[in-house]
């Protein structure tokens, strides 16, 4: 792949830092800043935010001076299936209960890979669900409800 006239990755990173700094900075501004003796909750984060914005700007400036490598491909399929897995677990662990929730969480995550076919995915999810129920719920005695209220008939 060809190199670019400026480092896009670094430039993007710098912009990201500036945005994060601004995000925290604005919120700090709304908090009580206080004095040096009695610093308020906003004092320290405001100072840090300013530093972060400056650092981000410096990163951007540096990026324009040197060529960089391209960012490369993104794991789109991975993001679609991996990131929701823990969210799904969080949404259902109390309602559905531990066993069905962890089974479905694993099942969802399986689809992130093209190599995983539905049947092995099902099998793997069952194995994971059984194993983690035995280890965490029975052996370690974690206070999880195995089957939640949504499932009680």
């Amino acid at each position: 792949m060809t190199s670019q006239s400026y480092d896009k990755a670094d430039a993007a990173a710098g912009v990201l830092f500036i945005l994060i700094g601004l995000g925290f900075g604005v919120q700090s501004w709304w908090l009580d800043i206080g004095t040096a003796l009695r610093m308020g909750p906003g004092y320290f984060p405001l100072v840090l935010s300013v530093i972060l914005v400056l650092l981000g700007a410096a990163v951007v400036v540096n990026a324009t001076k040197q060529p960089g490598e391209p960012i490369g491909s993104l794991a789109a399929r991975g993001m679609i299936y991996i990131l929701p897995a823990p969210i799904f677990f969080g949404l259902t662990v109390r309602g559905l209960g531990f066993v069905p929730s962890i089974f479905l969480t694993t099942f969802i995550a399986c689809f992130a890979s093209l190599k995983m076919k539905p049947l092995p995915a099902l099998l793997l999810s069952v194995v994971v669900a059984v194993f983690s129920t035995l280890v965490f719920s029975y052996a370690l005695g974690l206070p999880f409800r195995r089957f939640g209220p949504w499932l009680s008939f």
């Binding site: 897995a85 823990p86 662990v93 962890i102 969480t105 995983m116 793997l124 965490f136």
Partner: peptide, 20 residues
């Protein structure tokens, strides 16, 4: 172990671990 088998397991364990 093939990675496509490993990572769903990692995701399950991480979810449990973080929640616990």
């Amino acid at each position: 172990v093939p990675y496509y088998v490993l990572f769903p397991i990692i995701m399950a364990m991480c979810s449990i671990g973080v929640y616990s």
